[in-house]
Design a protein around this nucleic acid. Structure first.
Ligand SMILES: [Zn+2]
Length: 322
DNA sequence: CGTTTTTGACCAGCGC
DNA sequence: GCGCTGGTCAAAAACG
């Protein structure tokens, strides 16, 4: 079931479509009313029309944004699919626990405008491995803007912050899996020791806290929580860098030691990883608002849960908690 | 027997 | 200062 949410007909109208750019509403209702009413209402009508035009324009812009997003997503998915096809010839599906699976590392860097991680990084960057045969996406984000937001809109170029972040690097991993069983494993090749689990405000799914147990000096932490509504997506947030070489871990077929897997108390789903550096809350409500808007739009016009989840996660990751 | 998971307590930051 | 939240600790349990 590879959602074939074809873009072709992604009706970008999503009910938000208000009339259209031009001011020639096919409807006669307005005219009739106008007729009945006196010209006094004219002002009101004008105002409404203006408003309508404005909204229409906004709708158009949003549509463009969405289109761009969709296009990008399609492109991404295509790449991922290709990689998966190459790296994962087997095609195991269905239940049968989480067994085997060859560690398929799929990593993707998205954007690196100015900062871009670079520099330090003793060990190879994260490696998002497609868990049970789905896909993993890793995005590197910096506390700027950019990222997966090809949306270009009348946004003043502002923000750009003076992130004098120290060295704490945070990474978020979004992996998309399929097995909706009880396996929430983010196989990243490292050994993790769970040290806590909490339920968060708005998110029926609990969040698990892990710490790297491979080396005592390694204080890399990881948080795993599945998406709010779509339990199909798992969001893993990595924090810090490992000071030890990544365990050559050759994934044994069949038995896995405890660790190297993050489980959030019965929660299946895909996992997505995203990397960021240390973004602070800069943009304010406007952005959040816009985010919600886009989110809703995406949710409304996309049937693909994966896409929606990814989008939501990605956006959520960029914006300091709503 | 050593390690990891579980789970409630504990604590710090934040908004009111 | 109080209550809410998110993050961590640590004791006990579970696992191998
Ligand atoms: Zn480590």
């Amino acid at each position: 079931m590879d959602e074939q949410w074809m873009i072709g007909q992604t009706s970008l109208s999503l009910g938000l479509n208000v009339g259209g750019p031009r001011g020639a509403p096919p409807g006669t209702r307005v005219l009739v009313e106008e007729d009945f009413m006196s010209s006094k209402k004219n002002h009101e009508v004008e105002a409404l029309e203006a408003e309508l035009r404005r909204v229409g324009e906004e709708n158009r812009r949003l549509s463009d944004m969405l289109r761009a997003l969709v296009a990008k997503y399609a492109d991404l998915q295509g790449k991922v699919s290709g990689m998966m096809a190459v790296a994962n010839n087997h095609h195991q599906s269905s239940t049968t626990s989480e067994g085997g699976s060859s560690a398929s590392a799929t990593r993707k860097r998205a954007r690196s405008d100015s900062l871009d991680t670079a520099s330090r990084n003793p060990s190879p960057p994260l490696t998002a491995a497609g868990a049970s045969g789905r896909f993993a996406v890793s995005v590197t984000v910096v506390p700027d803007q950019a990222d997966c937001t090809p949306l270009h809109q009348p946004c003043n170029s502002k923000r750009v912050r003076a992130d004098e972040v120290k060295a704490s690097r945070v990474s978020k991993l979004y992996v998309h899996a399929d097995p909706s069983d009880i396996n929430l494993v983010v196989k990243d090749g490292y050994q993790w020791r769970k040290y806590g689990q909490k339920v968060t405000k708005d998110n029926p799914c609990p969040r698990a806290y892990f710490r790297c147990s491979f080396a005592p000096s390694c204080q890399v932490k990881k948080k795993v929580q599945r998406s709010a509504e779509d339990k199909t997506v798992l969001v893993a947030t990595y924090d810090g860098d490992h000071n030890h070489a990544p365990p050559p871990k050759q994934q044994r077929s069949g038995g896995r030691k405890s660790g190297d897997a993050a489980a959030v108390r019965a929660s299946p789903a895909p996992v997505i990883v995203q990397q960021q550096r240390k973004q602070e809350a800069s943009t304010a409500e406007q952005v959040a608002d816009r985010k919600n808007l886009v989110e809703q739009m995406a949710a409304t016009l996309t049937r693909d849960p994966g896409f929606k989840a990814a989008l939501v996660s990605a956006l959520s990751g960029r914006i300091p908690v709503a």
